[in-house]
Design a protein around this nucleic acid. Structure first.
Lengths: 217, 217
DNA sequence: TCAATAGTGTCTCTTAGACAATATTGA
DNA sequence: TCAATATTGTCTAAGAGACACTATTGA
């Protein structure tokens, strides 16, 4: 007998920047089906406790991964009879961004096996259709970088323009012109200069910035 | 007792151009809840016959409205416990485009009450959260017009550049410069000039064009 | 001829892109 | 001083926007 209801889940592509590359978090599946394969973190909707699917996604990240992300948004919905051996399933895919200085929090927390994989090459044999999901999340992420200040969500609270540029470059996959990049930021209200605060290194100090107070997206 | 499974539906914002404005199709609800209110066409997923949710959407359009659309794409997914009095529900919202010369086919077919409403003012008291859904579909539609040749799906097979421009203007809600518009189309491979074919009216004849054979988007 | 719309040309201004030049630190 | 990176400036070319101009039909 066929099931009358689909399995409804929220899956999350959690991105961060780690060791100089854009990463996505994968977990090793501890249950059948696809036991032992790597998959995006996700969980089944619980109508009793989730007021909507965003809730489901946040609950999964909080309980399974141990992080509460500031930024979470939908990518698309994947559905069908063929994508999960248990039968008809529907996954709403989210993408979330974790500031790179919060990466250690993830590694420490859990006994379950999780890995930060290179987002552009997350591995060849992911569970279910998750290779496709990663691809889709990456496309959405990229499309947002062009116009918006989205990558602020991947940076620490205080950052330099060079750091912001590097982050954009990592996501886009190609280098940007320093001069052009800075010129555009001049008219970007979501980026605020921290008057008199600098990052000191082995060279000329770099001006520090922060996201505007009302910065949301 | 709470339900353990959400109600999964596909809702469709079917757009067309009619009498000089952008329209969206609404149907009068014939069942409770929200009986008598106007809503986007939609239907419950049938796992037995739908291979994925796109299938559900196409089935709804075909059976309830009587059209098979060429273009159908996702907008976003709306979910939660509060949006439908029957309980936890999840709707994947699609938008579809109907060429304006196929509008009569819809009107004729059905005994159920359907109306082509102005997409920017579909009415104040739509069923459920459908006013929000229309808004979201409209935003997506607009965002696609800027860069792409999407409005081709709203035009007859053969069309003039002025017709194409008017259609873009209807969607965007503001007028476009003729010269700029045509200049951009010069480098648009999805639009093909029909050599020697013209539309004759009460003035200078207009060159006819068609969408490129491989045009999908 | 005129009205009406199709289609083209031209000017300016903004901005992207490339790249050079300058500035400021620690070593 | 030099190495390294931050920050700014300059030139050019492409494109957007505004708007004027020409073209071609039916009445």
């Amino acid at each position: 007998m066929k099931k009358l209801f689909p399995l409804v889940t929220a899956d999350i592509a959690l991105f961060t920047v780690h060791e100089g590359s854009l990463r996505v978090l994968l977990g090793k599946r501890a249950n059948a089906p696809e036991l032992g394969k790597w998959a995006l973190p996700g969980g089944v909707l619980d109508p009793a406790s989730d007021s909507d699917l965003d809730d489901t996604a946040r609950r999964v990240l909080s309980s399974k991964i141990g992080v509460d992300v500031a930024f979470l948004d939908q990518v698309a919905t994947f559905s069908g009879a063929a994508r999960d051996p248990r039968g008809w399933s529907l996954s709403v895919l989210y993408y979330a961004l974790l500031p790179r200085d919060q990466v250690p929090a993830v590694a420490g927390n859990k006994t379950e096996a999780v890995e930060w994989r290179d987002a552009f090459a997350p591995g060849s044999r992911l569970a279910f259709d998750h290779a496709k999901l990663v691809e889709a999340a990456l496309t959405t992420l990229r499309s947002k970088v062009v116009s918006a200040a989205l990558p602020l969500h991947l940076l620490p609270e205080r950052f330099t323009l060079t750091e912001l540029q590097r982050t954009c470059e990592l996501i886009l996959g190609h280098s940007l012109d320093k001069s052009v990049f800075r010129r555009r930021l001049k008219s970007e209200p979501s980026i605020v200069q921290l008057e008199g605060e600098f990052l000191y290194g082995a060279q000329r100090p770099a001006q520090l910035y922060r996201a505007a107070a009302d910065f949301r997206f």
